[in-house]
Design a protein around this nucleic acid. Structure first.
Lengths: 354, 354
DNA sequence: GACCGTGGTGAGAACGTTATCACCTCAACC
DNA sequence: GGTTGAGGTGATAACGTTCTCACCACGGTC
């Protein structure tokens, strides 16, 4: 036995009330900051609380008020700087609105996402922000219907009516392709993850929406320029640095290798760049390179990499604000908000060499 | 009134019990998985629960059991990849132990840290993992004493008895210095953050322990090699990429610039590297470079950067495990666990040119 | 003087769970 | 046939808070 009081003998409002010589109700009002309490009673209660080391219990409060002042945040991969920044944005918005954040990581596993949502619902979060992974979004609709507002972050979910904050991936991707084509490229490769390897083109339902949209934009951009066989240099299922590395090696070893590489996110870019380095290719003289995500290191490498910058933190913040509005009772029909990407031209794109 | 049931008419155990034709107690047992229930009763209860859309309420459960199955995690900066990885480690350990994680960001602000701890305590987390920022750790001791175990992550707190999981920063730092000296360097600069600019050497109480320990190790390493005025190239208060950039520019512009740069973390390294690039210095021919943290980009730049690798995720995981043991009732005296760093030699160190 | 509103107070219900206890049944054991 | 034990059940207390309501005192207004 020993140090410190154990979990069970926490001081509660009735004890404070008794010490202060007032009723439980009055002590509760003084401590909880609701109702009206005389100056004198408040002082006595506060003094008694300090004396006894009273610690309020938000759990009990949440049961009675029906609000926990907590929002649940479900992301795929906290280690991805994009999500880290988004989490930061959500955190900031939550703090500003008086909410705490309960965080869950899914590792892109739909089963873990479902169970995370379940746990968060059981903990009675007031709202949910989710970057949905592949698969059905039934559980999210269900959550929303049971009274817990849901906002989707960075990714769409098919056929459900939920607020969504994201970026126009399709268009940004097409713009990159157009830029490369203007620079003179024809053999343009897209290295990306998030889709089943088996069926890269019929991408309607598999994989994460972000990946699908970027592929879609890529293909559209290629077709718009009448480049035949646009899927020739499309490499899906390369979502990790390692797999992107392998996919890029593969591309570079081909008889007719691409003259430009488009990496679909910052982690993919890492693998792509490593493969390029190992092949002793010079950027941009031998090969051009564009990446999604303005990761901090992209401007410190030589040459600095041309990127599509996403407002990751702002995305998170906006999702938080939208959710807070919903929790406050907003009844507008669910809608998507597109936030602008910025094409940051640096030094990794040039005309093809041959 | 609108879509979906509102917050207030959630289904509760008594309602399920009535629908299933059993007592509240039995329904509670069937749903909560405690006590003993007949096969038949359980089935009836579960069917009724599914029918009515019952959602368990962990808040009410937590009140009665005294455990919320939640741990609080307080970090300085979630956007720092080191902490992102550590958060990941904590998450994994928590999940394995059946706990959820409540996350708070402090931005290195002691006031925000205190208020975060306060809120988490009010939410009745079962334990707390904190990467303490500068200043007193009184609130943490208080938390521990009031029955909420605390584990420190990555950073020490002076004069308090708390479990701590970290790395031997002093020694790792001294080892880097020794390595550079063996390579022939004398004019070695340390660019670091986390300390008041005013008084860089008397570092006993200001700043974050990590920074202080690294400075200490740096100075020790220099003194051990009998290099005079070791603080000559010491630049503190340069904890962000921007400030590190400015500090490095400053160093490089000196009459007798350093021949080797030591960046105290991955964000500092970003700024240092940018300054080096802009000065058109070649690494390692013109100047050598070592950084703390094996950030993913450090091996993709040319030349790949020699780093001190920290087991960030393992650190977080171990902190989680330690906390779980504490919450399970372990009464061992608090202790520090040092995890090993790895010196990863790459291509950014060479003998000084002159 | 009757009436109202308002600030303050306390008793007790309410929230949705789990814990405690008493009780019942049935089988196993001596 | 009694004792023991285990499995199952329900009534009710308990957790720590806020909510509801009734009540009082007081001042102002008609």
């Amino acid at each position: 036995m020993g140090k410190g009081r154990t979990r069970r003998d926490q001081v509660s409002i009735p004890q404070v009330a008794q010490a202060a010589g007032v009723s439980t109700a009055t002590a509760g009002r003084a401590l909880g900051g609701y109702g009206s309490v005389s100056q004198e009673a408040r002082e006595r209660v506060l003094a008694a609380a300090a004396e006894l080391g009273y610690q309020r219990n938000d759990l009990a409060r949440a049961i009675i008020t029906g609000r926990s002042d907590t929002i649940g945040l479900v992301v795929a991969d906290i280690e991805n700087p994009f999500f880290a920044a988004a989490v930061r944005g959500v955190s900031d918005a939550a703090r500003a609105g008086g909410y705490e954040v309960l965080l869950a990581n899914t590792d892109e596993d739909p089963a873990r996402e479902r169970s995370a949502v379940d746990v968060l619902l059981a903990k009675r979060v007031d709202g949910l922000i989710v970057a949905p992974t592949a698969g059905s979004a039934e559980h999210l609709v269900h959550a929303q219907r049971s009274g817990c507002p849901v906002v989707l972050l960075d990714r769409r979910a098919e056929g459900v009516e939920l607020d969504t904050v994201l970026v126009d991936n399709d268009r940004a991707s097409a713009d990159v392709v157009a830029h490369l084509i203007r620079a003179g490229h024809q053999r343009i490769a897209l290295v990306t993850g998030g889709m089943r390897a088996a069926d890269p083109v019929a991408s309607d339902q598999t994989g994460v929406s972000t990946g699908r949209d970027r592929v879609e934009g890529f293909l559209r951009g290629m077709r718009d320029a009448d480049i035949p066989q646009p899927e020739r240099y499309l490499r899906t299922a390369a979502g990790t640095p390692e797999r992107a590395y392998a996919a890029t090696r593969d591309l570079l070893a081909a008889a007719e290798p691409p003259t430009a590489l488009f990496a679909s996110d910052n982690r993919v870019a890492l693998g792509v760049l490593r493969a390029v380095r190992e092949a002793s290719l010079r950027v941009p003289d031998d090969i051009s390179l564009v990446a999604f995500d303005d990761a901090d290191w992209t401007r410190v490498v030589t040459p600095a990499i041309t990127v599509v910058s996403q407002p990751a933190q702002a995305l998170g913040q906006r999702a938080g604000e939208l959710l807070i509005a919903r929790m406050a009772g907003s009844e507008d029909p669910p809608h998507s908000e597109l936030m602008p990407t910025t094409f940051v031209e640096r030094e990794s794109v040039a005309a093809p060499s041959s």
